[in-house]
Simulated scan of single mutants.
Amino acid sequence: MPAPADTGRRNAIPVLYTSGTHYEVGYDVGRTFRGIIEDFLASFKELQDNLLPAYESPKGRAAYDQTLSSLQDNFPQYVRELQGMADGAHVPFHHLMLLHMDQVVPMNCGQERSAGTNGCSSVCVNHDGQVLLGHTEDALPETLNHVYLVSAHITEEEPQGKWGIRREGFTALCYAGHLPGFCMGYNHHGLVFSINVISPKKVLAGKTPRHFLCRALLSAKTMEKAQQILRDRGTGSADGFSVNMSFTRQEGDHLFHNAEVGPAEEADESPMSILTISPGEHLLHTNKYLRLAIPEANGLCMESSNHRHARANDCCPPETRAALLALLSDTNDTVYPFFREGGDPDFVKTVALGVFDVVDKTWTIWMKNPQKADPLLTLPLLFTWAD
């Protein structure tokens, strides 16, 4: 009997453990998840209808080449990691690189920002005994069932890239064909984090795509290093995003930090705003700037964010695990809910929901709405402090 065309929301996620160089780890990811990557690329309308046609235009190809040249100068190890993934999955390298450049190529050949780059809600809870980072991973509908977990230890003989990193260890949720770091995850130095995309009106060629800054963040040992990575002095970010993070190794009180990052227009480093969430506080961040005064694109990204913040004001404050889950699984707003199932006009879907418990050192993941389903798995946060 043939498989149904629509398999629905699956309650499953594959996990890969791998070690080696950046290229070897990328190759293992591509080889292991070849089928998932191929299926995703074939069905992903954003790639077929927007990114590839823009790449074929003279201005789009120039933006691609300029951005790739910058990445090869600053982050050659992550370019090799992506090349390994393409080789392992037997897919064209430029198809995967276009996913990572996102709107850099189309918006620099005259197109408006695609409605496809939006999603995710994050909640930092820092209350007595409740130190939690919750996150809904929201993406285009084709991404549903096309995610996996990668747990990697990377070792190189020589320092790599602009920050001179030789070793990395992390576990991260990944979209098919994407480098780790752009969703949620943790590294073995004790950093846990989640990402919210933001849509500024301008996206810049020749700067560092946000996917690569998030990938680099998986190497950060300290908050100082994380800020250095996000500022990306010498180049700066091409696009907008925010990071919700906690360095669980630090002494003293537990702290969360929210970093809003903007495109480095007429500058060689990213504009950035840092907010610290101290004990007794909590924070919701969606897909709009709360502090940086950077012009943003109107549309689904902004409209949905406004609805989610308005709904949060009507809910119980997320001061406990139960309240956090109630908020992130909320569907009271039937047009722009927190847990998204796709529809009109909000076609985005929540592909996973995760909660990091900093006190218990666990990461719990749901693939279905927690209102109706148990978590699929709980992973221990395995931190090591050796360089």
Results as ranks from 00 to 15, higher is better:
residue 127 H to T: 14
residue 120 C to W: 00
residue 112 E to I: 04
residue 127 H to I: 08
residue 136 T to W: 02
residue 120 C to M: 04
residue 125 V to H: 00
residue 109 C to V: 04
residue 122 S to M: 04
residue 127 H to Y: 15
residue 131 V to K: 09
residue 137 E to L: 13
residue 143 T to C: 02
residue 143 T to V: 05
residue 113 R to T: 12
residue 109 C to S: 14
residue 135 H to D: 11
residue 141 P to H: 04
residue 141 P to L: 03
residue 133 L to N: 08
residue 139 A to G: 01
residue 133 L to T: 06
residue 128 D to G: 03
residue 145 N to P: 03
residue 130 Q to K: 08
residue 131 V to H: 13
residue 109 C to R: 05
residue 129 G to Y: 05
residue 120 C to E: 01
residue 119 G to T: 08
residue 126 N to R: 09
residue 129 G to I: 02
residue 117 T to L: 15
residue 127 H to C: 14
residue 115 A to L: 14
residue 118 N to R: 13
residue 142 E to V: 06
residue 135 H to A: 12
residue 121 S to T: 12
residue 112 E to A: 11
residue 115 A to S: 15
residue 112 E to D: 12
residue 138 D to T: 02
residue 132 L to D: 06
residue 131 V to W: 02
residue 135 H to G: 07
residue 111 Q to D: 07
residue 134 G to Q: 06
residue 113 R to G: 15
residue 110 G to W: 13
residue 132 L to H: 08
residue 123 V to M: 08
residue 137 E to P: 04
residue 143 T to K: 01
residue 114 S to C: 13
residue 126 N to C: 08
residue 129 G to E: 05
residue 127 H to P: 09
residue 109 C to F: 04
residue 131 V to N: 08
residue 114 S to D: 15
residue 110 G to H: 13
residue 135 H to E: 12
residue 112 E to H: 07
residue 110 G to P: 08
residue 115 A to K: 15
residue 113 R to M: 15
residue 142 E to K: 06
residue 111 Q to V: 05
residue 127 H to A: 12
residue 118 N to T: 15
residue 118 N to Q: 11
residue 141 P to T: 04
residue 139 A to T: 00
residue 142 E to Y: 09
residue 126 N to L: 10
residue 139 A to S: 14
residue 109 C to A: 11
residue 117 T to H: 14
residue 121 S to A: 10
residue 117 T to V: 15
residue 144 L to C: 03
residue 138 D to L: 03
residue 133 L to M: 10
residue 130 Q to S: 11
residue 135 H to T: 11
residue 142 E to A: 15
residue 117 T to W: 14
residue 134 G to W: 05
residue 135 H to S: 10
residue 116 G to N: 15
residue 137 E to W: 13
residue 124 C to Y: 00
residue 125 V to S: 03
residue 128 D to S: 09
residue 131 V to P: 04
residue 120 C to T: 00
residue 144 L to P: 01
residue 119 G to C: 04
residue 139 A to Y: 03
residue 141 P to Y: 02
residue 131 V to M: 09
residue 139 A to M: 02
residue 137 E to K: 09
residue 120 C to N: 02
residue 136 T to D: 04
residue 123 V to Y: 07
residue 135 H to N: 14
residue 136 T to E: 01
residue 133 L to C: 10
residue 122 S to I: 01
residue 130 Q to N: 15
residue 126 N to T: 07
residue 119 G to I: 05
residue 143 T to P: 00
residue 130 Q to T: 07
residue 109 C to W: 07
residue 121 S to D: 09
residue 114 S to F: 11
residue 132 L to K: 04
residue 124 C to F: 01
residue 138 D to A: 01
residue 134 G to E: 08
residue 126 N to F: 09
residue 143 T to L: 00
residue 126 N to D: 07
residue 124 C to S: 09
residue 119 G to P: 03
residue 144 L to I: 02
residue 118 N to W: 11
residue 114 S to Q: 09
residue 135 H to F: 13
residue 123 V to H: 03
residue 116 G to V: 10
residue 136 T to G: 00
residue 111 Q to H: 12
residue 116 G to K: 10
